[in-house]
Design a protein around this nucleic acid. Structure first.
Lengths: 195, 195
DNA sequence: GTCTATATCGAGATAGAC
DNA sequence: GTCTATCTCGATATAGAC
C-alpha cells in the first residue's frame, strides 16, 4: 500500500461521499465518480472489489468524520450546555445543503433500508455516534434519567426538520423549528427557569 | 378507454405503489411490477408512456388515497380533538410497515429530492393534504394562531419518528415517541390543563 | 389490449497491456 | 498503479404479430 495509492483511494471516497449525498447511492455510477476524481472506470477495482465496498468505505469515513467533528466541538466548547445548543444549531449551519439534499445520515439510511438492507446496520452507526455523544453531554449536566430516550428524541427531531425542509425546499421552516427545539431543550431538559 | 384496460391500469398502479414503498422508485423495475401484476413488460407501454408516468400515477393515487382516508376519519370521528389524536396514532397503527420501510410519503420525497428532483413538487403535495387537514382541525378547535406552523411541526415530528424507527428497526422508540407527541398536543396546543 | 421479440443503452465488473 | 478494451447483465423502451 503505497502512499500515492492511498491518497487516490481517499480521493475516491471523498468524491463518492459527496455524490452519494447529492444523488443517492444507487443513482451514482462509477462513471460519475470517475469524472469527479479524474480517473478511469477500470481503476476502481484496484482500490475496491465492488461498489458495496466503496459504500462501506464512505460510511466508515463519515463515522470517522462525525467523531472528529464532535472532538473539535468538545475542545471548542467546554460547557456541555453550549455543546447541546451547538448540536441543535447544526441544521442551521448546513441549511442550504439540507434544503437541497436533506440530512446525509438520514437520507442514506432511508435509501439503504429499501435498496441495500444488509448495510443499514452499518449506516445507522452514524446516528449512534451522535447519540452516544449526546448522552455524555446530558450526563455531564447531571441529567441521568431517560438520557437515551432524550438523545434519540433529539436525533428524531432534527431528522424531521431535515426531511420537511428538503421536501418543501423551505429554509424558513428549518429556522423556526430550530428555535422551537432550543426552547424544548431549555424548558423540558435543562429546565433553566425551574431549578 | 375500455373498462378492462382501466382495471389493469389500476392494478399496475397499486402494484407499483407497494413496490416503490418497499424497494424505492429507482430500485423497482418494470419486471418487478410485471411479476406482481402477472403481465408482460411490453404491455406497460400501452398504459403508460414511461416509468416517470407510472410514478406520476402512483403519486396521484396516493394523494387521492390520503384524501379518502381523511374523509373517512372525519366521518368516523366528529371531535377535531379525537381526529388529531387519531393522526398521531397513525404511526402506531402502521408500526410494522414503518419499521421495515419508513413513511411512504417521507421516503419517496427523500428519494426524489436526489434522483428525480423534477417530481419532488408533485410528491410533497402528499404532505400538503395532511397539512391542510390539520389546519382545519385546529381551526375547528378555535386555534387560529400559528396553525400552519403547528401543522408542519406535527408532520415533521412524525417524519422524525419514522426515520429513526426505520433506521434502527425499533418499534419501541416509535411507541414512546407517539406518547410524547400526544403529550405535546395536550400541553402545548390544546392546553387541556390550563383552559 | 396483450403478447413476443428486439433495439439500445448504461451499469458493474474483469482481463490484460503498459 | 493506472490505463484501454471488453464482457455480461438488466434496465427502459419500441416494433409489430396476434
Amino acid at each position: 500500500m503505497g502512499s500515492k495509492g492511498e491518497a487516490l483511494r481517499q480521493r475516491i471516497v471523498v468524491a463518492a461521499d459527496n455524490l452519494f449525498y447529492q444523488q443517492g447511492y444507487e443513482n451514482t455510477s462509477f462513471s460519475d465518480i470517475a469524472d469527479v476524481v479524474g480517473i478511469s472506470r477500470g481503476n476502481f477495482y484496484y482500490h475496491f472489489k465492488s461498489k458495496d465496498e466503496i459504500l462501506n468505505a464512505v460510511i466508515d469515513a463519515r463515522i470517522a468524520g462525525i467523531e472528529m467533528m464532535l472532538d473539535e466541538w468538545d475542545k471548542k466548547l467546554k460547557d456541555p450546555r453550549q455543546r447541546l445548543y451547538y448540536y441543535i444549531d447544526m441544521p442551521l449551519r448546513n441549511q442550504e445543503e439540507i434544503r437541497l439534499h436533506g440530512c446525509p445520515t438520514g437520507s442514506l439510511c432511508t435509501e439503504l433500508a429499501k435498496a441495500n438492507r444488509a448495510m443499514l446496520d452499518d449506516a445507522n452507526k452514524m446516528f449512534t455516534v451522535f447519540h452516544d455523544w449526546l448522552v455524555v453531554q446530558l450526563n455531564l449536566l447531571g441529567i441521568n434519567k431517560n438520557v437515551k430516550k432524550i438523545a434519540m428524541h433529539f436525533i428524531a427531531r432534527v431528522q424531521g426538520i431535515a426531511i420537511v425542509t428538503n421536501a418543501f425546499e423551505d429554509k424558513d421552516f428549518l429556522q423556526q423549528e430550530v428555535k422551537q427545539l432550543k426552547k424544548w431543550l431549555d424548558d423540558e431538559v435543562l429546565k433553566s427557569g425551574h431549578s
